[in-house]
Structure formats: structure tokens, C-alpha cells
Amino acid sequence: MKVVETGNGARVMKNGGLDPQRVSFDKIPVIDLEPMFSGDAGAKEKLAADLRKACTEVGFLYIKNHHFPADVLAATFAAAEAYFALPDEVKMKNHVSKSKNNRGYAAMLEENTDPTARGDLHESYDIALDVPADDPDVLAGKVLYGPNQWPEDAPALRAALESYHAEMLTLSGHLLHAFALALGLDEAYFDQMVDKPLATLRVLHYPPQFGEIDDRQIGIGAHSDYECFTILAQQDGISALQVLNASGEWIAADPVPGCFVVNVGDQMARWTNDLFASTVHRAINRSGRERYSIPFFFGPNYDTLVEALPSCVDEDHPAKYPPVTSGDYINGRFAATFAHYAEAQKKEAGA
């Protein structure tokens, strides 16, 4: 058995190498999000029940009929591919170390999501909610807020990512309403907690891996996500994502045309007292092709207190986790994952 440390504790996986178990797609459920747009009460009730089942039993799901513009998705994949093809010295002009709030480019092996591993075999570009440098929250030292940095050599990347981020905020609002209903809450329960969300958008490039692979150095190591939920776009026909099930077995989460992958994050697991599963996952690109993916991580405002919801605790199920603000939780997880971020935090603390 191998143990993976996450922000919510240890998870166990069986020793099974790098090959996932292949199962039919209905093992990772497909949720139709159309009722959140049509407003039909009965259809919303069914959606909420389906979503609750998916989140309690799997923690991963596909969503269809999400109303995300296909042209924005295509433009972002194209811009990402063009950007990552630039010379390393050009991309390093916007390295994340030049940003106080973890925005910009990170090179191969600079991130390490699994503390037992040797670095993740991908490169990335990160943006988040674009908050001006003179914003009161930025001036107060809430380091996850701040301005994005943009590459002068890739104007198409900025245009694509800004459009994608804006559309994802809209989609996340609909999805969060569905989560509220799935928890038996008013549809707008979380709205006041996400009017200035910690919402990070990444584009990722994974080179293919050939031959014998060291399981300590793969595309992205075993981990759980930190925020409420992640909405992931995968390229059709390129398999890499694997999900750890309750039995400690890796299940393939292959791309499904027209669908996003959604997974529960650690903050939602804390809110629900682990009723909703924050599921460990990893990516190994053995497709023989370059792989690009676009994850969007959606979490509440910096000062939102994340603690077990009243409907998720009782005498038999006391709160498992101490209350923590969203900002403090994410800061801690970033420091554990990104060496440059941890170093910047140390310098800031010693200033």
C-alpha cells in the first residue's frame, strides 16, 4: 500500500503500477446541467439527487449541456499550444516567481503535487481573478488576490484566458447552485461567499512519456484539489487522467466529447464533513502526443470561513476538521506544492 498525503489527510492506494482500470463511462457519472439553465423545478430536483449521488459515491463526474461557448474553448486550446511552443527563455520572462500571487509561467518539474515524488512533468500558465494592485484586499496582504501578469510575446493567450475565465465564472455559478440544492440548501446559499472568489485558471502542457516510467515522476502526481470544485477541459482522444476509487484502484477518466470533468475539492469536502468526496487523481500522458488541458479551480472568497455545514454534522457525525479561512487553507496548500511560492512566503514573513 502507498499513502498519499493531501490537505485533508492521508489516502491509501493499492500497489498497482501506472495502468488504470478501464471501466465504462457510467462508472464516472454524466450529469446533465441543463435544468440549471431552464429553471424547471422538477428537473432541478432530479439533478440535485444525481449530483449528490455522484459526489458521495465517486467525487468525480462529467457535466454535459453546460452552455460553455465552444469557440472560447477551442481558442484557449489553440492559444495554449502556441504559447507552450515558444522558447523557454521567452516563457521565463513571465515566471511565477515574478508575481506575488502565483500568476504566470512554471516550467517542467517545478511543481510537486505528491510530496513523495520527484516533480511533475508538465509546464503551466496560471491566472486568477484580476484584482488591481491598489485594491484594499491586495494592500491588506491577502496574497492570493492581485493582478495577473501577461506575456508580451503571446497576446492571443491573454485574450483567450480572459474570455475563458469570465465564462467559467458564469458556469461555476450555475454549478455551485446545483451543489447547494444537492446539499438540501437554498439555491443561492453560497452566493455571498463567492462574489470575489479565489478562482484560478490554468493551461497545462504535458509531454508524452515513453518506455518504462518512474511512478515518482509523471505528468502530475497523485493529489486532491484544494478548492470547492474543479472544472476540467480535456482534449478529445488523449487519455491521461486517472481517479483513485474507494478501493484504492486507479480508474481511467477518459475525455467524453462535449463534456467537462468536474471533481470535488478539499474545501467542499470540509464544508460537507466529507459527505462529498474529494477524490485523489493523477495524470500520466502515454498517448504518444503532446497533451494540453485546462483546469479551472473555483473556491470561495479569501475570508470565507470553511467549516462543516449544519446539515452535515450531528451527534454521530461530529465535525472532522477545524474551521479555516479559504485564503489560509489555499496558502498552505500552495506552499506545500510550489517551491517558489513557499520561498516567497518565507521572504515576506521575514520582511
Rank of each mutant, 00 (worst) to 15 (best):
residue 259 C to D: 05
residue 154 A to P: 04
residue 212 E to S: 06
residue 239 S to V: 14
residue 176 L to E: 01
residue 228 C to K: 00
residue 176 L to C: 05
residue 174 H to P: 06
residue 197 P to C: 09
residue 193 M to K: 10
residue 177 H to K: 15
residue 249 E to N: 11
residue 199 A to V: 06
residue 201 L to H: 03
residue 233 A to N: 07
residue 254 D to Y: 01
residue 176 L to W: 00
residue 211 G to R: 05
residue 192 Q to M: 03
residue 231 I to L: 14
residue 161 L to A: 04
residue 252 A to G: 09
residue 165 H to N: 09
residue 250 W to P: 06
residue 187 E to M: 12
residue 235 Q to R: 12
residue 223 H to N: 11
residue 228 C to W: 00
residue 163 S to E: 13
residue 260 F to C: 05
residue 158 R to A: 06
residue 239 S to Y: 02
residue 240 A to S: 15
residue 184 G to P: 07
residue 156 A to R: 10
residue 213 I to N: 04
residue 252 A to H: 01
residue 228 C to V: 15
residue 232 L to G: 03
residue 248 G to W: 06
residue 191 D to K: 08
residue 254 D to R: 12
residue 235 Q to F: 00
residue 227 E to A: 06
residue 233 A to K: 04
residue 180 A to Y: 05
residue 170 T to H: 13
residue 180 A to H: 04
residue 219 G to K: 01
residue 185 L to K: 04
residue 184 G to N: 09
residue 170 T to F: 12
residue 260 F to Q: 05
residue 180 A to S: 14
residue 210 F to W: 07
residue 156 A to F: 05
residue 177 H to P: 02
residue 168 M to W: 04
residue 188 A to N: 14
residue 198 L to F: 00
residue 188 A to Y: 10
residue 228 C to Q: 08
residue 251 I to N: 02
residue 179 F to R: 01
residue 230 T to N: 11
residue 245 N to E: 08
residue 208 P to Q: 08
residue 189 Y to R: 07
residue 191 D to N: 11
residue 157 L to F: 10
residue 220 I to T: 10
residue 190 F to P: 09
residue 183 L to S: 08
residue 232 L to D: 03
residue 192 Q to L: 10
residue 207 P to Q: 09
residue 179 F to K: 01
residue 208 P to N: 08
residue 259 C to N: 10
residue 174 H to K: 15
residue 250 W to K: 01
residue 223 H to W: 10
residue 209 Q to T: 09
residue 162 E to K: 11
residue 226 Y to T: 15
residue 171 L to G: 02
